[in-house]
Simulated assay, not measured.
Amino acid sequence: MKKTLLTLSLVLISAVAFSQASVSLGLKAGANFANADTDISTDGITSFHGGAYGLIKLANIGIQPEVLFSKQGADSNFGDVDLSYVNVPVMVKFYLPLGLNLQAGPQFGILTKAESGSTDVKDAYKNSDLSAALGAGWDAPFGLQFTARYVLGISDVSEGAGDFKNRTFQLSIGYSLFKLGK
């Protein structure tokens, strides 16, 4: 395992050093405007997300995996549902001129907490969530990233009767802490 990791690291460093590739690591945070596609009428909630990202960029294509803590859920006549996830989106970014980009990719989520009011309802929800994410952004030349993204839940996260699929619109700002390459 150590040899494989060392080999991959050397290949990555070589690719960055001898090509147009760049690698950066950073932090990001922002607002979530969450709701759910469910059998009952729900209202959206406003919450937050935050975490870290890595970006591997070659010419006008980039791969950006992220690890984010995200508060999601919905309000209904039966009470609010607050879901906390550790989400791992893996975005493919297609770069346009001036750092503008279009993004798409899967997002994998792990449920860490589920509450309705102050009651623990984690047993009523599945431990994982699969979503598709689409968005647009701007990678500013001074290390800032601005992103708008819609995350569409594919999997039903409810353990009970009826569907509950997460829907989240995210606005975020990121900052590159480290960059290697162009």
Results as ranks from 00 to 15, higher is better:
L6A: 14
T7M: 13
L8M: 12
L12W: 07
S14A: 14
A15E: 11
A15I: 10
F18A: 12
F18L: 12
A21P: 06
A21E: 07
V23F: 09
S24V: 08
L25M: 10
N32I: 02
F33C: 02
F33R: 05
F33Y: 10
A34E: 02
A34W: 05
D37P: 12
T38P: 08
T42G: 02
D43S: 15
F48Q: 01
H49T: 04
G50K: 02
A52E: 02
G54M: 10
G54N: 06
L55Y: 11
L58N: 13
L58M: 14
A59Q: 15
Q64I: 08
Q64E: 13
P65T: 07
V67Y: 00
L68I: 05
F69D: 05
S76E: 05
N77G: 13
V81T: 08
N87D: 15
N87T: 13
V88T: 00
V88Q: 03
P89L: 09
V90M: 05
M91P: 04
F94D: 10
F94T: 12
G99R: 06
L100T: 04
L102C: 05
P106W: 03
P106Y: 07
P106N: 04
I110V: 15
L111H: 08
T112H: 07
S118W: 00
T119I: 13
A124H: 11
S128M: 11
L134T: 06
G137C: 07
W138R: 08
L144C: 08
Q145E: 15
